[in-house]
């Protein structure tokens, strides 16, 4: 899951617009970290993320908490840096031994680390898109489709949503909810997609 790495459209001009939190138990420790993963899910959900793993599949919070020890992973989208600072700090205080990856502007991540007394451990940076780049959709569409790291949001679905919006059959909020649905990991940012749709329509 290089999932969030190649997201487009984030800018230093809009700090804190989007931070994705991923918590993962190493597969060799999944059994011993089952309880810790359940606590992670409870803690993450307490901060009311914009989206969370399993939600696009229709799972409720209780099921997400039950599933976390089995899958060993929790992902959630936040649109408020202060919430992430508090969440990271709470996870730190609990000393659960679970890996946490933050995805967003490197400057935002640095701020969160400094605020919580943590240091960046490992960086993952995109060098861009190569190969048959003429097949890549326009930049605005890409800002939406790259919100699923597994490329499950189809550019055609973006176009279909825009078409319905133009005919006033779909609101931007409904359109955004439809577009995050293919991404089972729950890393689509409905708030940001809604904003992009308004710009595109």
């Amino acid at each position: 899951m290089t999932h969030t790495l190649n997201r487009r459209g984030l800018s230093e001009d809009r700090q804190g617009e989007e931070i994705i939190v991923l918590c993962m138990a190493h597969r060799g420790q999944k059994a011993e970290k089952a309880e810790a993963m359940q606590k992670i899910a409870e803690t993450v959900l307490k901060y009311k993320p914009e989206n969370v793993i399993g939600r696009p599949l229709g799972l409720n919070d209780e099921t997400i908490e039950t599933m976390a020890p089995m899958t060993g992973v929790v992902t959630a989208v936040f649109t408020n840096k202060k919430d992430v600072e508090r969440l990271v700090d709470e996870i730190k205080q609990k000393r659960l031994g679970i890996s946490v990856v933050l995805s967003g502007l490197f400057s935002d991540i640095r701020d969160i680390c400094r605020c919580t007394g943590l240091k960046e451990h490992t960086y993952h940076m995109s060098l861009g898109i190569f190969g048959k780049t003429d097949r890549v959709p326009d930049e605005k569409t890409l800002e939406i489709t790259t919100q699923c790291g597994h490329s499950l949001i189809s550019p055609s679905l973006v176009e279909a949503v825009l078409k319905k919006m133009r005919k006033e059959k779909l609101s931007p909020e409904e359109g955004a909810r439809m577009l995050v649905k293919p991404c089972a990991c729950g890393i689509g940012n409905t708030k940001r997609i809604e904003k992009i749709l308004r710009e595109m329509v």
Partner: peptide, 11 residues
């Protein structure tokens, strides 16, 4: 990119 992923050493 200005954005990316960072493991923050929580484990």
């Amino acid at each position: 990119y200005p954005n990316g992923k960072v493991n923050i050493g929580m484990a």
